[in-house]
Amino acid sequence: MKRIFIDPGKCDGCMNCSLACMNAHRAAPVPGTAPDPGATVEEQSVYTLDLTDPTNEARNFIHADGKGGYLPLFCRHCARPECVSSCMSGALQRDQAAGQVRYDPEKCAACFMCVMNCPYGLPKPDQLTRSKVVKCDFCVRLAAGPSCVRACPTGALWIEEVAADTPDLEDVK
């Protein structure tokens, strides 16, 4: 499986990753409408991204470390995902082959046990309707892979191949 790797020391807090995430998850363009006529999701320009659209939240978070540095919080698509364990609707499932935690908003019952159960605090209810979970989807729709990684100007984010499961991984406490 592929995982987004993070070198916090290289993060400059520019939040390009957050913008890229929003851009990848904005509503699909209406064909023939300005300003990106006919663009696919992948082609939509950040120039036309509505930065104040409350329905479009970034799924990654950059925190200041209080010492002048930054700590990027990105979904790890854990081998033993606590969000999936807590999901009572089946909306969150881990695709074992791809090593990715998938979310099906149609199945989700908005209990938000996943929000409570992620030890790293990644999932959140959507800010507008609070009826869906906002969580990284690894940009599965995009052939080029996760947009955040491609948008990072400092090399703080990259993709690496890791073992799909870690059966000997010590149980998460």
């Binding site: 919080l73 929000v115 159960n117 790293y120 605090g121 999932p123 800010q127 406490k173």
Partner: peptide
């Protein structure tokens, strides 16, 4: 309740947060 999952970890693992009391509401996994 967004991004609040870390609290459970801190509570169940009895993590000492006394060094963070000044900024406790801004606490996060970071």
């Amino acid at each position: 309740i967004g991004n609040s999952g870390f609290w459970q970890y801190l509570i169940k693992n009895k993590i000492d947060v006394s060094g963070h009391l000044d900024n406790i509401w801004r606490l996060s996994y970071t």
